[in-house]
């Protein structure tokens, strides 16, 4: 279905997969056959690439509801990780890759799958805060942008240093979200809204609800933004 260059193919596939996950989150009573969705997108790199881009969020319909992934669904993730391995940690370790793979491995563990030895998983899968001193004192604009990149760690089961920071700097998350909205960067704003949603019950941000509504209506044609919004809404709900 997709005939352009490999990066464009993955990008288009990511939009389709993100929309699919969003639908699953918004309709918890419908099944979510991940393997079938990935196959439908196409195995010319687009589908597996999209799984890698969406990362742990492809498992959100299972993590945040009663659905149980089938063996083939897990295998689709494993195949994607193998096909698109994390870059080698030497000479320059990539903390975002490490953190995103940490999230993926942890999310799989919650579903009863041990992925620590999977081929392609980042060997340094820390939690994105290997150097908390450096990130903790960063000025809020750059810190918030960094947190937006790590939004896949904003899932209820992923306790770690990044989440601890997110809880400690909620005002800065809100500032980063407001700044991104003013810059019309709905995706970044939605990712930060998702971090705010994570601890919304223990430390309520009064603007979160209106921010999510605003982003949903203004970012209406952006599927990755819609996924972050759906996740934020789901995460802020009490029952998981």
């Amino acid at each position: 279905m997709l005939t352009t260059s490999p990066p464009a193919r993955v990008e288009a596939a990511t939009r389709v997969l993100a929309a699919s996950v969003t639908r699953a989150l918004n309709s918890p009573d419908h099944p979510f056959p991940l393997a079938r969705r990935v196959a439908e997108i196409g195995d010319d790199g687009g589908g597996p690439g999209a799984v890698r881009v969406v990362g742990a969020d492809v498992l959100a319909p299972y993590l945040l509801g009663d659905r149980v992934p089938g063996h083939d669904d897990i295998e689709a993730v494993r195949a994607a990780v193998r096909e698109f391995p994390a870059p080698p940690p030497a000479p320059h370790p990539d903390p975002v890759w490490a953190a995103r793979d940490w999230a993926l491995v942890r999310a799989l563990a919650v579903l009863g799958v041990d992925a620590t030895e999977w081929e392609g998983v980042c060997a340094e899968a820390g939690d994105g805060s290997a150097d908390p001193g450096a990130t903790g004192s960063e000025p809020w604009p750059t810190w918030a942008v960094g947190m937006a990149r790590l939004s896949t760690l904003a899932l209820p089961h992923l306790e770690g240093a990044t989440r601890t920071q997110a809880l400690a700097r909620r005002t800065d998350l809100a500032r980063g979200m407001a700044r991104a909205m003013l810059r019309r960067d709905h995706h970044t704003a939605a990712r930060l809204a998702r971090w705010l949603a994570l601890d919304q019950r223990s430390a309520p941000e009064p603007l979160l609800g209106s921010a999510l509504d605003h982003l949903a209506l203004l970012g209406v044609d952006e599927s990755r933004t819609a996924l972050e919004i759906a996740l934020a809404r789901r995460i802020a709900q009490p029952e998981h």
């Binding site: 809020w140 604009p141 005002t171 809100a174 500032r175 407001a178 700044r179 003013l182 810059r183």
Partner: peptide, 13 residues
């Protein structure tokens, strides 16, 4: 105190 820094950042940029 909460939001001025956001607007300063935006209009600086």
């Amino acid at each position: 105190h909460r939001w001025l820094c956001v607007w300063v950042e935006v209009f600086k940029e």
